[in-house]
Design a protein around this nucleic acid. Structure first.
Lengths: 215, 215
DNA sequence: GTCTATAGATTGATAGAC
DNA sequence: GTCTATCAATCTATAGAC
């Protein structure tokens, strides 16, 4: 309300640096990313970054926290936007779509977040391990609700089910093509596979199957 | 047959270096891994590595190729070991188990192979992109065979199905616990989810589901 | 085959002017 | 807030002895 013109504020620069750093960390890795490289893209000198962040590690930490928090908040917002009394399956589907679209919306941060944890400095890594555990617990709870509601077979391993879903969606940047499909359609197809399975229910081609086995 | 004692041969040293490098690249990333670090673990000096590999990049390239080739060969061997005339589903399941166990058997290489491609030097990255495409084509073919045999519903997107399976299995190092389960059991459970889906077939608790939707 | 020694380049970070 | 200048550390890679 006070000032917001071509005049770049400290907060703006800080945000720009984080976004550029996120992309660099995500595409090149933490160690391969240089402060000079980030500074070049921001149009400033490397030394100037240290006015906003005390070290390369502090910059990484800010990027990782901001990314994880943004993605998780976006997911939960989608669920919260459902009408009250929504079923567990509706909440589950809304959550998946929320996570999926968040992975795309915060693409730069997604890449950074998706990197192997082992590469990160100890402090940052430990925080991210906790974050990841919280995220998994959240989805574990979603699946338990689904189970309680009667939407999950008794013989299904919830942990494996969670891996199935999350490994697919969190790797979305490596396979999703915006021009070929939409998040809504993909999540719907994903849920069809997950809930209904891929095997045809009515047996219409027993001959072909028998033939293949025999030949 | 000529010599194989405490006397380390060139091939032995080369292999040891590759294994140590694979683990280092996989856990720390390419840029963060130093030749000194690898040499320390091998019990030699950094300069000595250059007798076996012309550069750090050449070492990486050897590691990536050896890993990818080992894992793929192991997968295909499992399929080839099936009795002749095995069904597409049997081949599919054998392939999954082969890939799963290969990911564990070549654990050090798996980590290196699983890293984001963007981090790698251009030459190595391009080779790995081709490798990855070949691997995806292979599994695409497996799913098409399954479809031809009548084991796949018409409305299932094969590409999405492939992502579903491969993203789960190739991330196995991040979630599989040898002490809690076995590769055979996990692959079996995975196939149950994939083929049959997770939703109960007989509707036994309509009251509960209706209640949840209504309240 | 492995060593010692070192060249040559790059990096994260600081000091102080403006 | 951003700059210039620079330091100290670390890295890949090479040269040549053994």
């Amino acid at each position: 309300m006070t000032k917001r013109q071509a005049n770049a504020t400290t907060a703006d620069t800080r945000e720009k640096l984080m976004r550029l750093a996120a992309r660099a960390f995500g595409t090149q890795g933490y160690a391969a990313t240089t402060m000079r490289g980030i500074a070049d893209q921001a149009g400033i000198e490397a030394a100037s970054i240290y006015y906003h962040f005390s070290s390369k590690e502090a910059l990484l930490d800010a990027v990782m926290e901001h990314g994880a928090q943004s993605i998780f908040a976006h997911t939960q917002a989608r669920i919260a936007a459902l009408p009250p009394g929504a079923s567990a399956e509706q909440r589950f589907r809304a959550g998946l779509l929320g996570l999926f679209s968040a992975m795309l919306k915060y693409g730069d941060y997604t890449l950074a977040h998706g990197r192997q944890l082992a590469e990160l400095p100890d402090k940052v890594r430990e925080r991210q391990i906790k974050r990841r555990a919280q995220h998994q617990d959240f989805w574990h709870g979603m699946l338990e609700d689904l189970h309680t509601e009667g939407g999950l077979r008794e013989d299904i391993d919830i942990a494996l089910c969670r891996v199935f879903i999350l490994s697919t969606i969190t790797s979305v940047q490596t396979w999703f093509n915006r021009k070929k499909s939409s998040p809504e359609k993909v999540v719907d197809e994903l849920c069809t596979i997950l809930f209904e399975g891929v095997r045809p229910r009515e047996v219409r081609k027993p001959a072909r199957r028998a033939q293949a086995v025999a030949s």
